[in-house]
């Protein structure tokens, strides 16, 4: 389905990003695996992709830094000759109630989760415009729509990602580039394993499908959005949250 396409997935060494990278590769794409911290895990994802007979390229970059982002894009372009798909997935949390939230925790989360989407989209827009084709997927979050106590920084960033998605969709539509967002609910990843049992059971009460999602649930929707089957969709936010937002 995605044969000979080239995809960049940020934050692809673990969690949802890893699953997206593997799922796109399963569908035929060659994948650039971006990571910032854990090279071993990134190389492991690359190994699994190569086992499928696809190409994988591992690139370390802090996606909140414009120089490193430019290097990421230019390295990917010089290796593969093109980039068809960009999945802005990298994200962090620094949770606290607003009165206790440190300015640096605000800045760090906004930079990693929101500014990164701006930097990567900006850097990729020129080559995608030239080729008259592109698929940009931004990973938002259910809390970007609903709000969530203790996550002012994360919620502001994820909400910002939705606004950015809609604006980029309008700016780039005439050039064959679609831009959509996926808003996961509570997904079983490192980001959610640390939640207490009490918090988890309260969460489940809010989820009509009464279970946490899996990274695969999210990756399957991303796979759909980057395929030709979704070529008439742009500026949308698809919720993958067991029915939390309706």
């Amino acid at each position: 389905m995605l044969n000979s396409k080239v995809a960049i997935v940020t934050g692809a060494s673990r969690g949802i990003g890893k699953e997206i990278a593997l799922t796109l590769a399963e569908s035929g794409a060659n994948v650039v695996i971006n990571y910032v911290g854990n090279q071993e895990r990134a190389e492991e994802v690359a190994r699994q992709i190569r086992e499928m007979g696809r190409e994988a390229l591992v690139i370390q970059a802090d996606v909140s830094d414009s120089k490193q982002v430019d290097n990421l894009i230019s390295t990917a372009l010089s290796h593969f000759g093109k980039v068809d798909i960009l999945v802005n997935n990298a994200g962090i949390t620094r949770d606290n109630l607003i009165m206790r939230m440190k300015e640096e925790d605000w800045d760090k989360v906004i930079a990693t989760n929101l500014k990164s989407v701006f930097l990567l989209s900006k850097a990729i827009s020129r080559p995608m415009m030239k080729q008259r084709y592109g698929r940009i997927i931004n990973i938002s979050s259910v809390v970007g729509v609903l709000g969530n106590p203790g996550q002012a920084n994360y919620v502001a960033a994820k909400s910002g990602v939705i606004g950015l998605t809609k604006t980029l969709a309008r700016e780039l539509a005439t050039r064959g580039i679609t831009v959509n967002a996926v808003a996961p609910g509570y997904i079983e990843t490192d980001m959610t394993t640390n939640l207490s049992e009490d918090v988890k059971s309260k969460l489940l009460d809010q989820i009509p499908l009464a279970r946490l999602g899996t990274p695969k649930d999210v990756a399957n929707v991303v796979k759909f959005l980057v395929s030709d089957q979704a070529s008439y969709m742009t500026g949308q936010v698809l919720h993958v949250d067991g029915g939390m937002v309706m």
Partner: peptide
């Protein structure tokens, strides 16, 4: 405006 960006490119 997008045409002009492309022309410059």
């Amino acid at each position: 405006s997008l045409d002009i960006v492309e022309l410059v490119m």
